[in-house]
């Protein structure tokens, strides 16, 4: 095992973490401000990926597709918020789970209806094709590095948005006391729609960026959604900082676990068995980490509520 390989895996973990952050930031924002658990967030991720793939293949430009993914996901989010989600804020979590579960069925089956069951493919834009050399002699895909860069920019942008702008001030106020800011004359229902659309746009962006690495297909959002849940549970629901920390932790632990566990076990077990046990353990690793963190801090590492 060379240092270059280790670095490559570390970067892969970081890239996964950044993707998870884009998903988790929206989820945690929506929960923090509106108190809503949104299972359909993965569907918005899928909408972004499909919009990007469709527009990119129609226009030939990945960048127009990327813009389309933001617009499509934000629009889908806003429409869903106005039609359905708005009625759920006052309901208990069970109703929210069920209604958004129903939305998943509608979105997945609707997308299959429109696009068929075959996956679409999205090419990496020419500007970002190729690889960059790593210290230690390895190569790393430029596109993945760019994805990490996008994540860092979005994280910084979100920080500025929330801490420095009027909208951010309202979002923070909405988190701490929604009746009060409504009483102060802020149009709370527009604010909710904006926050939901913002979260949706982030999910759509994540979907489009990942779409170029994997295939674009129905159901692609669900595994990511569940990982994003793990992220916000670890980070503390409602906390963007927690989402960032949790996302990087989950991304790196998951990737490194899959890479290192079989090797570590091969010191003790025969090779074939080490691979088997290692792979099985690695797929459970983040959940074990989550259970350990929750056993110590039941409301996550950076809980906004406590």
């Amino acid at each position: 095992m060379s240092a270059a390989l280790l670095l490559e895996q570390l970067l892969n973990g970081l890239q996964l973490g950044v993707m998870l952050f884009l998903m988790a930031a929206g989820l945690t924002l929506i929960f923090g401000v509106m108190g809503l658990i949104n299972l359909a967030h993965g569907s918005l991720y899928m909408v972004g990926a499909f919009a990007c793939a469709m527009i990119a293949s129609a226009t030939g430009s990945f960048w127009i597709g990327l813009a389309a993914s933001l617009v499509a996901a934000a629009a889908a989010g806003a429409i869903v918020e106005v039609l359905v989600i708005r009625r759920l804020y006052q309901r208990d979590h069970l109703d929210q789970v069920l209604a958004t579960f129903a939305l998943i069925l509608i979105f997945s089956e609707g997308t299959r209806w429109l696009f068929g069951s075959f996956p679409l493919y999205l090419d990496i834009p020419p500007l970002l094709q190729g690889a960059v050399p790593l210290p230690g002699g390895g190569q790393y895909q430029l596109y993945r590095l760019a994805v990490i860069g996008v994540g860092v920019v979005v994280a910084a942008g979100l920080y500025l948005l929330i801490s420095r702008t009027r909208l951010g001030m309202r979002i923070r106020a909405g988190e701490s006391d929604r009746e009060m800011i409504a009483a102060l004359g802020v149009d709370i229902s527009t604010l909710y729609t904006v926050v939901f659309a913002l979260g949706a746009a982030l999910a759509g962006l994540a979907g489009a960026l990942v779409g170029a690495l994997q295939s674009v297909q129905v159901g692609m959002g669900e595994p990511v959604l569940i990982l994003a849940f793990v992220v916000i549970v670890i980070g503390g629901i409602g906390s963007i900082k927690g989402a960032l920390f949790g996302a990087v932790l989950v991304g790196v632990v998951d990737t490194m676990g899959r890479f290192l566990l079989p090797q570590a076990l091969s010191l003790m077990l025969p090779a074939s068995q080490a691979n088997l046990v290692g792979a099985a353990l690695a797929s459970m690793l983040i959940y074990i980490v989550m259970a350990l963190i929750l056993a110590i801090r039941p409301s996550g590492l950076f809980s906004a509520q406590s």
Partner: peptide, 29 residues
């Protein structure tokens, strides 16, 4: 572990544990 938490956390944690068992079953040949 799950009952130490409540509300949304409980929903997500039970989901995560079920996924853990799912992935174990899928990756254990």
């Amino acid at each position: 572990v799950s009952l130490r938490t409540a509300g949304v956390y409980f929903i997500m944690i039970t989901l995560a544990f079920a996924q853990m068992i799912y992935y174990f079953a899928v990756s254990w040949p």
